[in-house]
């Protein structure tokens, strides 16, 4: 039997997290409160976790930062600084829904029509929304409104609402409609262009050139050029061979390209550290 690859483990983690946030409100309803909270702020026993954007918003608005929030946000940002935006590809339940929609769409067309990548515009749109939302909150609003755009938070909130107060939130429709739209467009629209929660994670990852990224060794690559399996595998329509040149804005280090390359020469691998030898090879 073949050993399960990186995609198996990733899906396992994703489904595990998605299931956990169904089970946690149920346990809370039974008064088992070891794990509490949702994707905006969470507590696992003594360990706090927090969405860095939510923390940034209330810190700037109130000039106040509690120890819990500081530690929680620092853990999330530290993970992003070391490993990139793995939250998006390994943890986020909406990321899972969006990827499943993308996979289904790809299977339907058997991987034929590749969408041309739009690399920088997505981040620019996201950044604009982030700036407007933050400024709007600081100047006009009384509540951190960007929190309402957090789809993982809405995912966990659906089950909080259901198990604690028997309320079926209309957010269910939202969380099913958006992957349906992405099934049609095939661009991971929300993750690429809208999700403001990812902006801080991306900024932190761009600050650290030594973070985990996919490296390409041109000598080992044995695939024919036009339809690379690695490009087919990327759910964000990136070209994995170029990811090592700089820290990529969009790449979430999901490892699908690495898995696709595994049986074809292993030219793509994960690696830490500033880029040195491999880029020289890629240029040859």
């Amino acid at each position: 039997m073949r050993r399960p690859g990186i995609k198996f483990w990733r899906r396992l983690v994703q489904f595990g997290v998605a299931t956990a946030f169904v089970v946690i409100p149920l346990l809370n309803h039974l008064h088992i409160n070891v794990l509490t909270g949702n994707f905006l702020a969470f507590r696992a026993g003594p360990l706090p976790l927090a969405d860095p954007l939510a923390v940034l918003q209330i810190t700037l608005k109130n000039f106040y930062l509690s120890a819990d929030l500081l530690v929680g946000a620092a853990i999330a940002l530290g993970l992003a600084a070391a490993m990139g935006t793995v939250f998006c590809s390994w943890i986020c339940p909406f990321g899972l829904l969006s990827e499943l929609a993308q996979d289904a769409a790809r299977r339907r067309t058997s991987g034929q029509d590749r969408v041309a990548p739009q690399r920088r515009t997505g981040f620019a749109v996201k950044l604009t929304l982030f700036g407007l939302g933050l400024a709007g909150f600081l100047v006009f609003s009384t509540t951190p409104v960007l929190n309402q755009l957090s789809l993982p938070a809405w995912y966990s909130r659906i089950f909080q609402f259901y198990f604690e107060q028997r309320h079926i939130s209309l957010a269910v429709v939202l969380l099913l409609a958006l992957p349906a739209v992405e099934f049609g467009f095939r661009r991971r629209l929300w993750c690429r262009c809208i999700c403001p929660q990812s902006v801080l994670l991306i900024c932190v990852k761009l600050l650290n050139p030594a973070q985990l990224k996919v490296r390409f060794d041109a000598h080992k690559c044995i695939c024919a050029k036009p339809r690379d399996p690695c490009r087919q595998a990327c759910s964000l329509s990136l070209d994995p061979k170029t990811l090592a040149e700089a820290v990529d804005v969009a790449c979430n280090n999901c490892g699908d390209c690495v898995a696709a390359c595994k049986r074809r020469g292993r030219a793509l691998r994960f690696g830490f550290g500033p880029h040195a030898r491999d880029s020289g090879d890629a240029g040859v």
Partner: peptide
């Protein structure tokens, strides 16, 4: 301005009186 809307208060409430605004 401070509430993160995380719902932890509702989750730890043993009397189930705290409800999150729907």
């Amino acid at each position: 301005a401070r509430c993160l809307q995380c719902g932890q208060c509702a989750q730890v409430c043993i009397f189930e009186c705290i409800r999150m605004r729907t």
